[in-house]
Design a protein around this nucleic acid. Structure first.
Lengths: 353, 353
DNA sequence: CTTAGCACTCCCAGCTTGCGAGTGCTAATG
DNA sequence: CATTAGCACTCGCAAGCTGGGAGTGCTAAG
């Protein structure tokens, strides 16, 4: 769109956007002339701003206030005007530090990510954790707990350790369980739980026909676990930071957004787009570009993370449309990359030699 | 305190409190006379109310508004006036239903508890999950993942399954790990991780001296896990419901409370009291009775839950001092009991025969 | 095309005003 | 002597008004 906009107009649009992002106040021609050295008078800027408004890049909250960027204006800003796209050094350092000490446990890692993301962006943050059902199985193991119960353990390539307790009818010996574990491992390693239902499953059943009843029970449990509404996958943080933003000083304006963020389902669906584009890209969705009504006044910046080229989850920042696109885009990109790196390390270690 | 308050005065205090709890509006003498059939005129009630105010049970938000209960008034209401203490049948049914389908996984159970608690009370809810370090160990198991990594699995009597991945230097054979697991089990079962460091630990070391290096590493990891600031233990829900309460329509009034609830540490400390009184009781803390500044305008109703007579966690509802003490007390009590029951069942199953 | 000047618009904060709700006092009542 | 009706009084709140300030759009001159 309008890449050929006159340079001065671009400069003005950038100035308005930059200023509004930091001050949260509608910005007038005078301010632009004073604070941003464009070498023209406020009257000239006024004319340009009137044009920009007519073209839909700016809008006035009310007749005699300054201008603020419209969604279209933000979009243009993000696509062609935004400078920087780098993360302040000390933030980067902080992230590395936090990640340094959380390398072991994936859940802690995810919580930390959400917290840091919220802290730095001063917005709400979302981290979607790995889904069990689509992750590659690294290891599967049956552990005897008591004569009546067996723990089914699944370790995925995303570092996730999932477990269920299975109540069994006939006592199984430790040796039996080991044998089953070994065969399950050799057959299932590398495939996903979702794929498991097909051919592989029948194959296992054939090889272990002696334990048919037990296996039935176990698979049923695993499939149920996998179909459970993706609980535990979505971590939200920084709600406080969001409330501190001036656009949400009115609780009634904030509530829809907070309610949206509280619903794991909706969040998952809204972030599905980011994941579908593959690793390495950040997606910015501005105001009315969001499908959901609740997010019409919000922007979402999201990026997928993953292992071995495969997407396993998404991280995102949700804030008012007036958000610091440059910094937050850099932030989200950096953290997604960081997460991917750590997962890769975890993964190589666990699949070791 | 003043158990010998005149019956009519009590009735009036009860009426004021009941009315204010449901309407959130200061209540005047006229309203009492009309809505609560005390058989006296508003003038009489006015006189009594003036007395009650002088004695500190009521207060006026401003000179010519109705009265609202003071913290002292609420305290008296909770201790001596409150009627009911029962939970509506349909709520009870809902809780049973929700618990019915979440019997297996303790984390899901806890999340559900928090959600339901928030839903029904229309307030914020907190569930403190079992701590690993003080829970009794039911089962401990080492699972080989790769030649470089071993999964350490600890199952506690509270149904908690905790796991850490341990990177080892020298390859361990599955048989070795089994042998270690067996011995660990026989020595450690029934004790807590916190107790582990002492005599038991040395005993194990002696018996398994061949694996000394490995054991050192493992214990270190477990102890580190146990000393990590109790992450993952605190689940908060119903923040939205809290914001919907009229006393929090102003974000600035709500923020301190929300910030408090976002800090796991503070929440844990505030709820420590409830746990220390043993199973079966609910604790009500009203407004200024709370130590923390952030909670001066809130009331907290909490109850511990546990297994085999031992407290393993706490659930709580946090709302404005104007909260429905009768219903919420019943609710919190009922859910704590329900949680305990489920844990007991889990426990007996896993330690089975 | 740019700019200075100016009239105009509109929000906002502060003030006033008129209700309505509720109180406290007083005097009358059983 | 407790209870009650009556009444003046207080106060918060919403509505209406007002002045100031910020910012615009227009126009005419450079």
């Amino acid at each position: 769109m309008a890449e050929n906009m006159a340079e001065r107009k671009k400069a003005i649009l950038r100035a308005v956007t930059d200023d509004y992002i930091t001050t949260a106040e509608p910005v007038g021609s005078r301010t632009i002339a004073r604070k941003y050295g464009l070498g023209v008078s406020s009257a000239t800027i006024r004319n340009e701003m009137a044009d920009l408004e007519e073209e839909g890049y700016l809008e006035q909250p009310h007749a005699s206030a300054g201008r603020i960027p419209s969604d279209k204006g933000y979009r243009f800003y993000v696509d062609s005007l935004m400078t920087g796209r780098y993360l302040p050094g000390f933030e980067e350092k902080r992230i590395r530090l936090e990640y340094e000490r959380r390398r072991d446990e994936i859940r802690a890692l995810i919580r930390t990510t959400a917290r840091v993301l919220g802290d730095i962006s001063q917005c709400a943050s979302v981290v979607v954790g790995p889904a069990v059902k689509t992750a590659e199985i690294r290891h599967i193991q049956l552990v005897p707990l008591s004569s009546e119960t067996v723990l089914v353990l699944v370790v995925t390539n995303a570092g996730l350790v999932e477990h269920r307790v299975l109540t069994i009818e006939h006592t199984m010996h430790s040796a039996d369980l080991d044998r089953i574990s070994r065969i399950l491992n050799s057959k299932l390693r590398g495939s996903t739980l979702a794929q498991m239902r097909g051919a592989v499953l029948r194959e296992v059943q054939a090889e272990l026909s002696a334990y048919a009843a037990f296996l039935d029970q176990m698979f049923e449990l695993l499939l149920a676990a996998m179909h459970s509404p993706d609980e535990e996958r979505v971590y939200v943080d920084g709600l406080m930071q969001l409330l501190a933003q001036p656009e949400f000083k009115d609780v009634d304006r904030a509530r829809p957004v907070l309610e949206f963020l509280e619903s794991d389902d909706l969040v998952l669906r809204a972030l599905a787009v980011a994941g579908s584009r593959g690793l390495g890209g950040t997606v910015v969705t501005i105001g009315s570009e969001n499908v959901r009504d609740e997010l019409q006044s919000c922007s979402v910046i999201s990026a997928p993370y993953g292992v071995a080229g495969k997407v396993v989850g998404t991280i995102a920042v949700v804030g008012p449309t007036r958000l610091d696109y440059s910094t937050v885009t850099a932030l989200v990109g950096y953290m997604a990359e960081g997460l991917s790196d750590i997962l890769a390390r975890l993964n190589s270690r666990e699949s070791g030699e």
